[in-house]
Amino acid sequence: MITHQMEGVKKMVEEGRDCSEILIQLSAVRSAINSISRIVLQDHITHCVVDAVKNGDKKVLDDLNNAVAKFLK
């Protein structure tokens, strides 16, 4: 889905389409990425983090904090 959207943006640029149209499409791509990221994060917390904490693995929390920090850069 996102790859298809990015190909569409690339084609728009190559065709010399209006910058405002391109920006709108880029906004849609960013929204899709944010939605997928939210799903991955929720799943990770619900399953991986909960299981790791139950098993005494605190490293997973450090890993999650590092991943979130990099994602939000």
Rank of each mutant, 00 (worst) to 15 (best):
K11D: 13
D51S: 04
A28D: 06
K59F: 03
K58P: 00
V60D: 00
H47P: 00
L64I: 04
V29S: 11
I39A: 10
G16Q: 07
G8V: 04
I22Q: 04
G8F: 02
Q25N: 13
A52D: 02
N55Y: 00
S31D: 14
V40I: 13
V29I: 15
V9R: 05
V53L: 04
G56V: 01
T46Y: 06
N65L: 13
E7W: 00
D43P: 00
G16Y: 08
R17F: 07
L72W: 08
K11R: 15
K59W: 00
K11N: 15
L72Y: 11
I33V: 14
D63L: 08
A28V: 06
C48R: 01
I22G: 06
G8N: 10
N55A: 04
D43T: 10
Q5M: 15
V29W: 05
K73S: 09
D57H: 01
M1D: 13
N65D: 08
K54D: 07
K58D: 09
D51Q: 03
K11L: 14
I36P: 01
E21N: 14
K58Y: 09
V50D: 01
D63V: 12
C48K: 04
L64F: 07
A28M: 03
F71S: 14
S27D: 08
R17M: 05
M12L: 04
V68I: 15
E21V: 10
T46C: 07
G8W: 02
K70W: 03
H47Y: 06
R30S: 12
Q25I: 05
D51T: 03
V13N: 08
K10F: 10
N34L: 09
D51H: 04
R17Y: 07
N66I: 01
S37Q: 12
R38G: 10
S27Y: 02
